[in-house]
């Protein structure tokens, strides 16, 4: 048998659709790409709690409040699944969180938009989580084992998120004129940022090609975005609302919806930190972390003290 170098064995595994596990040899760039992607994904789940947390105290009924709390708790859980998947690649949780707080690591730009009305809870569930699901369903087949397993668990739970969001909008769409207007307004504000969630066009995405070759990503940004547009353009008919795009129309030849140009200047501007809420979001995360410091220290001091006690008992 010819002796293969680790890189060939690695590439062969990828081609044979075998998962890469934490202790397997992997190219440094594969490790880094996964680490970047998984930790950013984790940060997005955690920062993603903020726009929705904003409405927990003001949810219109006890039922809606309970649902929203459950959803926000899910996002925290998703962040934790992902942080532990990222940790298997060799970066500590503290480092990742420090990278988020210093601004070195990014999170999904969508969470830098404000949630202004109750209808935003519907639009976020339906559009933002809807877009996330399309990306995440693809990622259940990603080549890094711990990431794929985290995604399977997350996808099972996300479906509730999207359905509760759509239901919020459905109820509003059947309500008073003011409620209908609020529903349409939320869709208007969240539609374009949702399309941007899939990232730059394939021709301009720096990470896409290598990620496809390693089967970290399995569909391109534009493919996923088209899938999302086709889905939403049909579902909005049930709401009797309109998507804010005059160029949106069915293309019988391509069997897809055509849609208008995305404002990439806005996208890059928000990525660079100039979105409406970038500062507010990071401040909130830093404050939560700093204010929790004494609790983390107290818990570890308590655990150590008890260990000592148990030791002296045994002795």
């Amino acid at each position: 048998m010819p002796v293969q170098n680790p890189e060939q064995i690695f590439q062969q595994k990828i081609e044979d659709e075998l998962k890469i596990e934490p202790k397997d040899w992997m190219p440094d760039a594969y490790r880094k790409t996964n680490l970047r992607q998984i930790s950013q994904h984790a940060h997005s789940e955690v920062v993603g709690m903020l726009p929705e947390g904003n409405w927990i105290t003001r949810a219109p009924s006890l039922k809606r409040k309970a649902i929203l709390i459950a959803k926000v708790q899910d996002e925290a859980g998703h962040g934790l699944y992902l942080y532990s998947a990222a940790e298997t690649l060799g970066q500590s949780r503290d480092e990742m969180i420090a990278d988020l707080h210093t601004g070195k690591a990014k999170y999904s730009s969508i969470f830098n938009y404000p949630s202004l009305t109750w209808a935003d809870m519907g639009a976020i569930g339906w559009l933002v989580d809807g877009a996330a699901i399309i990306n995440q369903v693809m990622l259940t087949r990603t080549s890094y084992g711990p990431y794929a397993r985290a995604m399977v668990r997350i996808c099972k739970e996300e479906s509730f998120h999207q359905r509760q969001g759509f239901e919020i909008l459905l109820v509003l769409s059947q309500g008073t004129d003011e409620q209908k207007a609020m529903c349409q307004d939320a869709i208007n504000r969240w539609w374009w940022p949702s399309l941007m969630m899939f990232g730059p066009h394939d021709s301009e995405s720096t990470h896409s090609e290598q990620s496809m070759q390693w089967k970290i990503k399995r569909k391109s940004n534009d493919e996923l975005r088209q899938q999302f547009v086709d889905m939403i353009a049909e579902q909005i008919k049930v709401l009797g609302m309109k998507l804010p795009d005059k160029d949106l129309k069915w293309n019988a030849e391509k069997k897809h919806y055509d849609f208008g140009k995305i404002n990439w200047d806005e996208f890059w501007n928000v990525v660079r930190g100039n979105g409406p809420c970038n500062k507010q979001r990071l401040d909130a995360r830093r404050k939560a972390h700093e204010n929790g410091q004494w609790v983390r220290e107290a818990a570890i001091a308590y655990a150590e003290k008890r260990n000592e006690k148990n030791k002296s008992k045994v002795a």
């Binding site: 969180i97 707080h101 601004g103 410091q293």
Partner: peptide
């Protein structure tokens, strides 16, 4: 997981 700490930046991550 090795627990060496990440480097600093403008924000003082305690």
């Amino acid at each position: 997981i090795p627990d060496e700490k990440g480097g600093g930046s403008n924000y003082e991550a305690k």
